[in-house]
Write a protein that binds this DNA or RNA. Structure first.
Lengths: 246, 246
DNA sequence: TCAAAAGTGTTGTTGATACACCCATGT
DNA sequence: ACATGGGTGTATCAACAACACTTTTGA
């Protein structure tokens, strides 16, 4: 069996988060349906990135493939956060028209498994740039096609939860970053304000955050020290947390 | 469309956890395949409980239905924790034989969405009791059919994580319970030992744990005070936790 | 009267919170 | 020289960890 046989009932949707040091963004596809006769635009809206899986492909690989096709990046943080299969999820008029227009059975039940991934936007050059894929600030996304708004909200919730308990913030930053960038990331994703000194005291306890002998360059203020995350140190020093903060 | 049209590629598997004040148990089904000619047993092993979904049914409802059919209970805690769809998940010889014998296409790709649910075993009278559904201590489950061992481990991990951060322990206990029972629950599920006095100090901070004017009866020692969980108080007093213990 | 689990306080240590000023750089 | 964000310490309070004895019941 070759990789090209597609399964038509199982798909993955990728919520690709990107951080640009100011806000959290998500990669969305501009979907546009034109009248097949006169070419007039019937509607235009936004979807998450996603695709059906191949018959011999795992869900995780399918998600990684979607991500690779958009960014050319591999070994990116990917986390499954939910399965979406409500009977009505593809039943809105625009979605039905879209499915018909793209030759798919609008009646068939399709399950979608959600993965979110984390990127530093500065690392990314979009492969479909200028075509129909763009970064949008998460806070400004109001409506999406299908049930993708539900999926996005669920992804954001999963990301927040993960960020509170696992060291994954670094995945949204370049390899070397400043503590202010890291703090800003936490503030933006969790929607809180943090005290600089207290934040840094907390950081100091995380041995796997390595201070480099290197500083920012070209900034119009005191250049900040750069840090990086050491997975090796993390694995060695991680302690199982038993605080049940219920 | 009636409820009886089944979708043959999407299923739910339920990891039904039960606590008996001593250990954590899981409800498993004894699967037995007999030779169609001579009736000889070909193999016998264990599976999780689960079923395919109906065409007009949500995943969550399907899981609740599986649970209801086994226990007669409704409004039970149910949590989706993952989707399982690896290409090889139904490909082991026993599983292939089983699928063929039950008239299903052993080649077709089936996705299963995992839900775990929490029960106090003393509340349950199994509907299929004596037939093929039984409680097994989680710690003693070594092999399961299909990829169900993977699913069980994933469920346990999700349960532990949830137990650390949300008040769900009560779902594994009868409505009224003692603090020692609650402590034992945490110890068993998280596989840790806790100090009695420190545990009780922690409990004292949880306003939603209500001390009743009622005691255990018929125990051969000082009877313990009974407590119950108040969801109302919990909703009112919950504070968003911002400790990122990363 | 014995066995079994319930219930209860103190101390030392660690982490959380609140808060204000000087420093290094580019323009 | 000025604007900008970098970087630092202290004091108070809350939670965590370690630890041992008395009480109440049924058998």
């Amino acid at each position: 069996m070759t990789k090209t046989v597609m399964n038509n009932t199982i798909s993955v949707d990728c919520v690709i988060f990107g951080f640009d040091f100011e806000k959290l963004n998500v990669l969305l596809v501009d979907r546009e349906l034109k009248d097949e006769n006169n070419g007039e635009e019937l509607f235009s809206d936004l979807t998450l990135t996603g695709n059906h899986i191949f018959e011999n492909e795992s869900l995780e690989n399918a998600a990684a493939r979607v991500l690779f096709d958009l960014t050319g990046l591999e070994n990116i943080y990917l986390k499954q956060f939910g399965a979406f299969c409500d009977p009505g999820r593809l039943k809105r008029p625009n979605d039905q028209a879209w499915l018909r227009a793209s030759g798919r059975d609008p009646e068939s039940r399709i399950i979608s498994v959600g993965y979110y991934s984390l990127l530093a936007t500065e690392n990314v050059t979009l492969k479909w740039k200028g075509r129909n894929v763009k970064w949008y600030p998460v806070s400004e996304v109001k409506d999406l096609a299908f049930d993708h708004m539900v999926i996005l909200k669920s992804a954001l919730q999963a990301l927040r939860r993960e960020l509170l308990h696992e060291p994954i913030g670094f995945e949204l930053l370049p390899e070397k970053f400043t503590l202010s960038q890291l703090q800003k990331l936490y503030e933006v994703v969790l929607d809180v304000e943090l005290d600089k000194r207290n934040f840094r005291k907390k950081i100091a306890r995380m041995k796997y955050l390595i201070a480099l002998d290197e500083k920012q360059k070209g900034v119009a203020h005191k250049p900040a020290r750069l840090y990086m995350f050491s997975r090796e140190v993390y694995e060695k020093t991680r302690k199982e947390v038993l605080d049940f903060n219920i």
